[in-house]
C-alpha cells in the first residue's frame, strides 16, 4: 500500500511543478482539480478499513476540490475573459527551479523531523511540505488575482496531505470546517475578482496598490 501511496504522492509533486511552469490559467486550474481528486484517494491508501467519517471526508473533498471549486474558478475566468498569466514576478522557468529546490529541500529535511516512526517510509510529510512551499511560491510570484487563488488552493492541498497523518486523531468536524472555509473563501474571491475586473478592467493585483490612500 505504501508503495502505491508514494506513487500517487510523486504524481502530486509533478503536478506542483507543472502548475508552476505553465502560463495557461485554465490548465493550472485543471491540474489543481486533478490534484484534489488524487488527494481524495490518499485516505483509501492509508487506512486499511474504511470508516464512515473517512468516507464522507473523501466524498466531500473530491466533490468540492475536484468539481465545485474548479467550476467556480473557470466561470470567473470566463467572465473576466483572461486566458493566461502574462508576466509573473519571476519567470516560469525560475519558478519551476525554485519549486524544485523547495521540493528537494522538503525531501531532505523531512527525514530530520521528529515524526512517528510509521511515517518515515512514506512521502506524506515531504510532499505536504513541498506542496505548501509551491503554494506560497504561486501566491508570491503571480500577479493575477485568480492565480493567487490557485496558489491558495495548492497551499490548502498541502495542509490536507499533512492532515492525513492525523486523520484518526482529528475529528471530522474540523476537516469539514476547513473545507467549508476554503469553499467560502474561494467563492467570495471569485466574486471579488469579477468586481476587480469591472473596477480596474484588469485582474492585476498590482492595481490594488491604488487603494492604499
Amino acid at each position: 500500500m505504501t508503495d502505491l501511496l508514494n506513487a500517487v504522492l510523486v504524481i502530486i509533486l509533478v503536478m506542483n511543478l507543472f502548475a508552476l511552469g505553465t502560463s495557461r490559467i485554465n490548465a493550472v486550474i485543471r491540474t489543481v482539480a486533478i490534484q484534489g481528486i488524487l488527494l481524495g484517494i490518499i485516505p483509501l491508501l492509508i487506512h486499511k478499513h474504511l470508516t464512515i467519517p473517512v468516507a464522507i471526508m473523501i466524498i466531500v473533498a473530491v466533490v468540492i476540490k475536484g468539481t465545485v471549486i474548479p467550476t467556480i474558478m473557470i466561470r470567473a475566468l470566463r467572465d473576466a475573459q483572461i486566458k493566461r498569466e502574462v508576466e509573473p514576478l519571476i519567470g516560469f522557468l525560475p519558478s519551476i527551479i525554485l519549486g524544485a529546490m523547495a521540493t528537494a529541500f522538503a525531501l531532505l529535511i523531512a527525514g530530520q523531523l521528529p515524526l512517528a516512526s510509521q511515517h518515515y517510509g512514506t512521502l506524506l510529510v515531504p510532499t505536504s511540505i513541498a506542496t505548501v512551499f509551491v503554494g506560497f511560491i504561486l501566491l508570491v510570484t503571480r500577479y493575477k488575482a485568480i492565480s493567487q487563488v490557485i496558489g491558495y488552493l495548492v497551499l490548502e492541498n498541502g495542509i490536507f496531505i499533512f492532515s492525513m497523518l492525523l486523520v484518526e486523531a482529528m475529528p471530522l468536524i474540523v476537516e469539514m470546517g476547513v473545507m467549508l472555509d476554503l469553499f467560502v473563501g474561494i467563492f467570495v474571491t471569485c466574486i471579488i475578482i469579477n468586481h476587480i475586473n469591472q473596477a480596474f478592467s484588469s485582474m492585476d493585483t498590482r492595481h490594488l496598490v491604488s487603494l492604499k490612500e
Partner: peptide
C-alpha cells in the same frame, strides 16, 4: 530542465526513501 529535474528527483527519492 524540467525533464532533468524529474530524473533528478527520481534519484533523490530512490536514494533517500
Amino acid at each position: 530542465i524540467a525533464a532533468l529535474l524529474f530524473c533528478g528527483f527520481g534519484f533523490i527519492l530512490l536514494v533517500r526513501y
